[in-house]
Write a protein that binds this DNA or RNA. Structure first.
Lengths: 271, 271
DNA sequence: GACGTTCTGTGCGCTAACACACAAATAACC
DNA sequence: GGTTATTTGTGTGTTAGCGCACAGAACGTC
């Protein structure tokens, strides 16, 4: 859907003096502009950060930080998906937020506090760019577009978390599974999601058997097909139909708060 | 518990030049320093805001803003308790966050977006100070202590919301009722809380009958007594014993992120 | 192709919370 | 002081999701 926007954008969008660097990036497989937040920065701020952005592989299952540990970096996912999870004393868990190419992990670095009582892990393999804490804070404290963008993103994140709270209370496992699948699908380039039902059960904070049952329904309805950790989204609008209102509330809020030009720009340049 | 701190504080804590105004305030029934955030400001910023702070009565049930409406003020509760609620399409609802004298309502004003998809209402009558949106933004954009304080508070708020999400998924109605009562008790000066079971059911997003049952248990245990909208906290440690871990996780995070000197200072001066 | 491992499917009893329908108690108001 | 509205209590049946215990199916690997 974001690709529809590409026709509206021209190569004039970013001051031309900055293009040589960027064009190399476009051709390379990894590019900071694959991340919406980085892509939304004005050229000046973007270029200032470019030197400091470190590309890191994010293998599935890797723990980015544990509850209470001091954060060292702010992560901007490009192809990976990260998960903020809270683990209860009794072994239970729940995903608090999903973070993919639309966002960043580690907001407590600039919000203050340096740490947060939750764990972050890689939920889907890929890559991310990261900034050292000090670099991030320096740039944030300039008080310019970067700061405003991060704050707006944090606001969107807050809405996501809020809606998760409401959803956990009121909606059925099946609806929540749809939400989970759509959120994941949104953050990947492909229709095939790599996640076992066991993983999903940890994310949703429900029994694995419950996921099996709900996923079976969705498969029988022809919306997805899956086998051993590989879920194929066959009929996305089917899922959108079965999901609760929570999904679109959050989606709308992200679209409102965060510029989404990056996909369009990226795709346009690589064609 | 905060009063224990008073012995550690001296009247030198705030530059003496600012006291005359403050002392008048101390004696008066309403004082901006009853709010933790305002109280934590350094004198300079506090004095700059003082002119703009408007005291407003907050009667029970009053709606501060509706979902999607543009916010006009940032509210700093002193004696009232506010509630951020999300109302579902099907009539269901859930409280997303409680806001009392420890915080502020309307963070999306400075985070960006100007609005948020939820409703805010007065859950317990009292007073609040408020700042006009523009004044708030001007002060926030100075980038000083006020900004940092608000950001830290927002971070704490985020933890509260996150924990609510987890709690909604995993814990029993009875545990959640305890959490609700403790949160309310923390934000009031008295042991008697004015809330009907119907109200609590809206807050928790459960059936009223469920609240009746859980409240009955707590009453039989001797932790509370209640009748027609008046709940008396008799044994607070009983509640703290029955509540889930979520309560203390959030409490600890607030204590870590937000200076709590105000109670101490206030009490010391009024003695 | 035999083996262990990792995923997924299914069945059964259980419980917390639900929906609905009233009854009882307390306060509020002419 | 009697009527009305609000709040709380109780009962009955229903259901979504839980816990546990396996069985089957797919994959890796040696």
């Amino acid at each position: 859907m974001e690709t529809n926007l590409s026709s509206k954008l021209t190569s004039q969008y970013r001051p031309s003096g900055t293009w040589p660097v960027r064009i190399l990036g476009m051709i390379a497989p990894h590019n900071p502009m694959q991340n919406s937040l980085l892509a939304a920065l004005p050229a000046e701020g973007f270029n200032r950060l470019l030197t400091y952005l470190e590309l890191v592989p994010m293998p599935f299952g890797k723990v980015i930080y544990e509850s209470g540990s001091k954060l060292q970096h702010l992560y901007f996912p490009t192809t990976c998906i990260l998960s903020k999870l809270y683990a209860l004393a009794d072994g239970g868990s729940s995903e608090i937020a999903v973070i993919g190419k639309e966002g960043a992990l580690g907001v407590s670095l600039f919000m203050g506090g340096e740490t947060t009582p939750s764990r972050a892990m890689v939920r889907s393999s890929g890559f991310a760019y990261r900034l050292k804490a000090q670099v991030l804070k320096n740039e944030f404290n300039r008080g310019g577009a970067f700061m405003q963008l991060l704050l707006r993103y944090t606001q969107a994140l807050m809405v996501q978390v809020s809606q998760t709270a409401v959803c956990n209370r009121h909606h059925s496992l099946e609806q929540q599974l749809c939400r989970c699948l759509l959120l994941t699908h949104d953050r990947l380039q492909a229709d095939s999601l790599a996640m076992t039902q066991e993983l999903i059960s940890n994310i949703l904070g429900v029994r694995r058997e419950g996921v099996t049952e709900a996923a079976g329904k969705l498969q029988r309805a022809g919306y997805i097909s899956y086998s051993r950790g590989h879920i194929e989204v066959i009929n996305r609008s089917g899922l959108e139909n079965a999901v609760c209102e929570c999904y679109s509330v959050v989606k709308t809020e992200y679209d409102r708060l965060i510029p989404h030009a990056n996909q369009a720009k990226y795709l346009q340049m690589s064609n």
